[in-house]
Design a protein around this nucleic acid. Structure first.
Lengths: 198, 198
DNA sequence: TCAGAAATTCAACAAGTGTTGAATGCTCGA
DNA sequence: TCGAGCATTCAACACTTGTTGAATTTCTGA
């Protein structure tokens, strides 16, 4: 059961898109098992492929992880989404559109992969930090405060806690809430971090 | 360099407290490297002990992890701390005392160990969830709302995000803030989750 | 003083790891 | 139709891992 043992040696007939299959399998396993426990052999088995093929396409295991974490975040749509609201609704708008985005399976998976891998890998941890920063940056772009970076950091702390609770810890009450529910519940807290005085 | 190679075989002379040394070394390595990468041999080396001694004291590696995560949380002092404030200050009080507690090295370490291990281990993840729940429970004990469990969950989400940002992601702006700063910044958000209408 | 219990190390095992180099089959352009 | 290049597998290497059983030393209580 190791790799693609048994399959005929050499190139397979017909059109194949094995590279993509490998990436998909790796994403799933990294997200589900973390970096260490997702072995090359297990990934290869899930992709129905020999482990050596992974090396051939992606190089070392860490390179494969890096390739998995590369996800087109498309923040442009987020910017316009948020800026179509008046400033006093930025908090709710951010929560709503971010949760909607994160709820998409490929983003949930990406978040879990970054977290599970980032737990043991500094590079992945920094990437998680960076992704969070980017996701939030559009909402704080209008701030000219002298405390704007602190405001951004507080927004990040609330949003990363939300992600943590909803996708990693899976706290039932948080999981049960719809994006809209979360927006009305959490939005004002964000709003206060953005514009409030304290 | 494997274990305590070179040290004389057999019982060491004098009083020893090797068991505690092992636990300490294991805590540090689990927190720093996560479960998988903190090998028995590495833990043994740090405790200047043979790997077999760990097995002798704690059993399997997972048992060792469980022993490491067992930490006397002493929530009693927290209860009295929070209840000594009027209800309208519960938010700030919770943030203040919880951050002060978590800032103590052994608790920071424990949190990181649960997170890094919990990333790959369901049992540790549940324990992290449980710890968070307990930490917050005292603040929501007075609630008789029909949404009290949801309120508690939202408080958890903000607090776990705070912990994440301060101890794991190490976001500079959050790290730089004192417990008091955080209490005045984050407290009102908690307060709103506790008593607010939405 | 002596026996038993406790503490500690050693050497080894079986299984699993990432990675490599060579071999084989397929496809496509000249 | 042939040959170059790509896709794919195989077998192996050199390590690392958690765990075990036996050997050795020290301590403790009678």
């Amino acid at each position: 059961m190791t790799g693609a043992r048994g399959r005929a040696r050499g190139r397979r007939p017909g059109d194949t898109d094995t590279r993509a299959h490998i990436l998909e399998a790796a994403r799933e396993l990294f997200a589900h098992d973390g970096y260490e426990r997702a072995s090359m052999r297990a990934i290869a088995a899930r992709a129905q492929v020999d482990p050596a093929l992974i090396v051939h396409y992606f190089g070392t295991k860490r390179d494969l992880l890096a390739a998995c974490l590369r996800l087109p975040v498309d923040p442009q749509s987020l910017i316009s989404e948020i800026n179509s609201h008046p400033p006093e609704e930025h908090g709710e708008a951010l929560v709503l559109s971010l949760v909607r985005l994160w709820d998409r399976p490929e983003y949930t998976q990406n978040f879990l992969a970054m977290l599970r891998a980032g737990a043991n890998d500094d590079q992945a941890r920094l990437q998680l930090q960076d992704t969070m920063k980017h996701s939030v940056q559009h909402a704080v772009a209008g701030l000219v405060d002298d405390r704007s970076t602190q405001r951004a950091a507080l927004v990040m702390s609330q949003m990363s806690g939300l992600a943590m609770s909803r996708y990693f810890l899976c706290i039932p009450e948080i999981v049960a809430m719809s994006p809209e529910d979360l927006a009305t519940a959490v939005g004002p807290a964000i709003q206060r971090y953005l514009w409030g005085d304290w």
